[in-house]
C-alpha cells in the first residue's frame, strides 16, 4: 500500500503515540511505517522464518495500539517496549514449536533471480549464513547479539529490554559472538572471505 514517508527524526515516537491515543490518524500511519519494519526484522532474526515473523509483528503492533491509551509519558520508549514484546512472542512460538504444537519449518526465501553482482550475492549469502548460525544460539544470546550488532542498540538499552544488567548483556554478546565466529569460520572461503596476512 502507498503511505507517505515517515521521517524518523521528525517527531519522537513517544509524542506520536500520545497523538495516536488522542485520535490523530497521521500518527497511526507514521507509527506503522516507522515501527513495523523494525518489529518484523527483529522477529525474523529471532525466529528465522518470514511467515512466522509477519504474524509476530502483527500481534506486537496490535498490542501497542491496545496499550497506547494507558501509555505513561516518561516510561520506556515504544520501540524498547516493542522489542521486549516481540522477543516474548518469539520465545512463546519457539517453545510451542518445540512442543510440536506449531510447525516452524524454516521456509527458504525464494532465490533472487535478478542479475545481481557477485558481491551482492555474497552479502546476501552471508546474511543467510548468519541467520542460520543465529538460530543455533541459545535464546538470550541470540536476542542480545541481534539487538547489539544488527539493530545497533546500546548495552544499557538492551539491558532495559531484556530486564537484566549491563554486565549480563556484555557476557551474552561476547559468548554469542564467539559461538557465531566458530560456526561461521568453516564457511569463510565459501562466503568470499580470504584472509590477508
Amino acid at each position: 500500500m502507498d503511505m507517505p514517508r515517515d521521517d524518523p527524526d521528525a517527531t519522537p515516537e513517544e509524542a506520536l503515540l500520545a497523538a495516536f491515543a488522542a485520535g490523530d490518524r497521521a500518527a497511526a500511519r507514521a507509527l506503522t511505517q516507522r515501527l513495523t519494519p523494525r518489529v518484523l526484522a527483529h522477529a525474523y532474526r529471532l525466529l528465522g522464518n518470514r511467515a512466522e515473523a509477519e504474524e509476530v509483528a502483527q500481534e506486537a503492533m496490535l498490542r501497542l495500539w491496545r496499550q497506547a491509551p494507558e501509555w505513561r509519558a516518561g516510561e520506556a520508549k515504544p520501540s524498547t517496549w516493542l522489542y521486549r514484546v516481540t522477543a516474548n512472542l518469539c520465545i512463546d512460538r519457539r517453545r510451542r514449536a518445540r512442543a510440536g504444537e506449531v510447525p516452524l519449518d524454516a521456509v527458504p526465501e525464494p532465490p533472487d533471480t535478478s542479475p545481481a553482482a557477485i558481491e551482492r550475492m555474497q552479502a546476501r549469502a552471508r546474511a543467510e549464513a548468519l541467520q542460520a548460525a543465529l538460530g543455533d544460539l541459545p535464546e538470550r544470546q541470540r536476542e542480545a547479539v541481534v539487538l547489539r550488532h544488527i539493530e545497533g542498540l546500546s548495552n544499557p538499552e538492551i539491558a532495559a529490554i531484556m530486564g537484566t544488567s549491563i554486565e549480563a548483556v556484555e557476557g551474552l554478546t561476547a559468548r554469542g559472538r564467539r559461538a557465531l565466529a566458530a560456526a561461521l569460520g568453516h564457511r569463510k572461503e565459501e562466503l568470499g572471505h580470504v584472509d590477508e596476512r
Binding site: 500500500m1 503511505m3 495516536f20 497511526a28 500511519r29 507509527l31 506503522t32 511505517q33 513495523t36 519494519p37 518484523l40 526484522a41 525474523y44 532474526r45 518470514r50 515473523a53 509477519e54 509483528a57 502483527q58 503492533m61 496490535l62 495500539w65 555474497q122 552479502a123 546476501r124 552471508r126 546474511a127 549464513a129 548468519l130 541467520q131 550488532h149 544488527i150 545497533g152 557465531l180 561461521l184
Partner: peptide, 24 residues
Amino acid sequence: YFEAARAHPPVPSAALMASVLRAA
C-alpha cells in the same frame, strides 16, 4: 556478516503494513 544482515533487512509486505494500519 552483521553488516550483510543490516544491509538485507526483511521488508514488510504491503499486506502486513495494511493490516497493521487497519488495526490501528
